[in-house]
Design a binder for these strands. Structure first.
Lengths: 342, 342
DNA sequence: GCAGGTTCTGCAAACGATTGCAGGGTTTAC
DNA sequence: GTAAACCCTGCAATCGTTTGCAGAACCTGC
């Protein structure tokens, strides 16, 4: 840590005023309390000495750290970087910073990460790791620290605000796209059902099929244990090994869809000739795949921005009414979907 | 709520001892100073009250924030997430955390980001944004805050430690792979020459060509202004518009290589039939491209780990001898390279 | 010239922890 | 039996800021 850093006392001494005066000058909200002339001398001395407020001492005294914790499963999942940018850019604009922790989806890591963040006295938390029943969320409520859930949410009766995608609608877009192409027997590689995204997209799939006048065959639904390429591959292979035939598969996210690609390759099936595939998230570079992936585009960056805004509002006014934002997804049609080979 | 608010004084009062005693119990290094019996009572009371040390107060008093700043160009660049994981995992193991800032490569953002981090009294910095002449690095040296450069480095006479790839060797691998396939006329889409990576890879290209007994034709080298798909596309188009013919192109990184793909598509050339292409970095998902990209794999995660280790060492012993680590790259041969169409 | 009102600045107590020093108590040694 | 040696624990200062309160100085109006 910087040893030679000038403190408020040094500045005060240099100008010949009391430290509290310097404090008032450095603080926009109280600058008006001190004579313009003195203020000028103080700012000059401060600049001359290279003074910068010690954020630690400031936070300790004011009980505001201007820090928020962001908990995500894994930053190497390409969905998260744009979200983080949205969060960080928004926070930075008001002098806040984010500290990030990866949990790898392990609920026990959650707890220790949370303690760490509470110890650092974060002003609030953004959680992208919420499970439908989530101890961490409960803990935060008990501790009365402002929280907003992002991407995923807990049970529907949640009391904490959230910013999520309209998962039901998003899946609906893929299904109607496929039925529009003439597909009737559509399979679903569902995500983990203890995550709101997995559950909602599953529900959305059932609803959309029904709306299209088709029946969603339970034998054509495979559930992945986690969102990963490997699980997607496994799930689709299971379906292919089943008795029921199908011409298209709606994957609950892009990673699962990638796994589906692999499964097709290993069975020497061609996409989209033998099988159409759709994803969810429009991760970076899925437009470069072979074939380019038809998927649901979500507003990554915007999601981060909104989550940060909601949280900041919560921090300044803890009594603020809870909001639940649901961002509008859109369909990006690319090469992985086509007419069924009659 | 009383839980997060519990201070060392509350615990002291509950047990009937002095706060300093509690402090000594909570601190592993001083626990031996207090009777086992009292220590037990203190820890129990602490647990009961849900006491957790206030990291802010602790840092203020001890002048160690257990925080390091990480400055990167842009987290949405897929190279960085694995590096960050390496950093964060390593730091977390010893109770440190990272705060991350994106500069978008803008040198003026650098400065404000740096001030922010210094204000938060980071114990050290990891910079992935170094230019060959870098004001921020100079500033850190002046402030005597420990720094390590990652991925890129400054001029060769630098006094700060660094953890980088062996760029020269990496490029050498691509060139000898191509010459091994029979290519003789090889072009180079170089990166920005004010970044060490761009410069070193350029040098490496020249050296490798020479070593292969070929001459690197200046007319077959195009320099990209930034590492981006667009610049890669522009650069290759420029080369294709030139008089000189060539059968392969060595791009200075994967994003540039992606741009080269686009350029070929727009000229209706096929890779690798008409033109072989190599990248650098082995970003996630480049194995899924069409064709899969032959590229240089670097040790992303390990780079983060090493950088964090070097920094931690520097923090505990500022006099430690400077180290420069150079990580070994390897070649990953995929579908984007083949024999030249004689 | 004086009561009453405005500004401004200084004082000192926090915020929550750590730590050198001193003193009380117990044990050991002679 | 007493001095020396030890082991604990408490005291109080400190890290760098902020902020309620008090008082000094100046101004205003009568």
């Amino acid at each position: 840590m910087a040893r030679s850093k000038a403190t408020i006392n040094d500045v005060a001494k240099a100008v010949g005023v009391h430290p509290s005066t310097v404090s008032r000058v450095m603080n926009p909200g109280t600058r008006h309390m001190v004579t313009a002339e003195i203020a000028k001398k103080v700012t000059e001395a401060a600049r001359g000495l290279g003074y910068h407020r010690n954020a630690l001492a400031h936070s300790l005294r004011t009980r505001r750290s201007s820090t928020v914790g962001v908990v995500i499963p894994d930053i190497t999942n390409p969905v998260f970087p744009p979200i983080l940018r949205g969060i960080e850019d928004t926070l930075a604009a008001v002098g806040y910073i984010a500290i990030i922790a990866n949990t790898d989806g392990a609920p026990d890591r959650d707890a220790v990460v949370l303690e760490h963040m509470l110890a650092r006295r974060v002003d609030g938390l953004i959680l992208a790791t919420a499970r439908r029943k989530d101890a961490v969320v409960d803990r935060c409520i008990a501790e009365e620290v402002p929280v907003v859930l992002i991407n995923r949410t807990t049970g529907k009766d949640s009391v904490v605000p959230s910013v999520v995608n309209d998962d039901v609608r998003g899946i609906g877009l893929t299904v109607s796209h496929l039925t529009g192409l003439g597909h009737r027997r559509i399979a679903h590689v569902a995500g983990p059902q203890d995550l709101s995204t997995g559950l909602e997209r599953h529900r959305g799939f059932l609803a959309a099929m029904k709306a299209a006048g088709l029946k969603a065959d339970p034998a054509l639904i495979a559930v992945a244990g986690v969102y990963s390429e490997r699980e997607g591959q496994r799930a689709l292979l299971t379906l292919l090994d089943g008795k029921k035939r199908f011409t298209a598969v709606v994957a609950a996210n892009d990673l699962l869809a990638l796994g589906c690609y692999e499964a097709l390759v290993s069975r020497e099936l061609s996409c989209p000739r033998d099988m159409s595939i759709t994803g969810f998230n429009d991760m970076p570079f899925v437009d470069k795949l072979n074939p380019p992936l038809t998927t649901v585009r979500i507003q990554h960056y915007e999601m981060g921005v909104q989550a940060a805004k909601v949280l900041l509002e919560r921090i300044t006014d803890p009594q603020a009414r809870r909001v639940d934002l649901r961002l509008e997804p859109s369909l990006v049609v690319r090469g992985s979907t086509g007419r069924p080979a009659s």
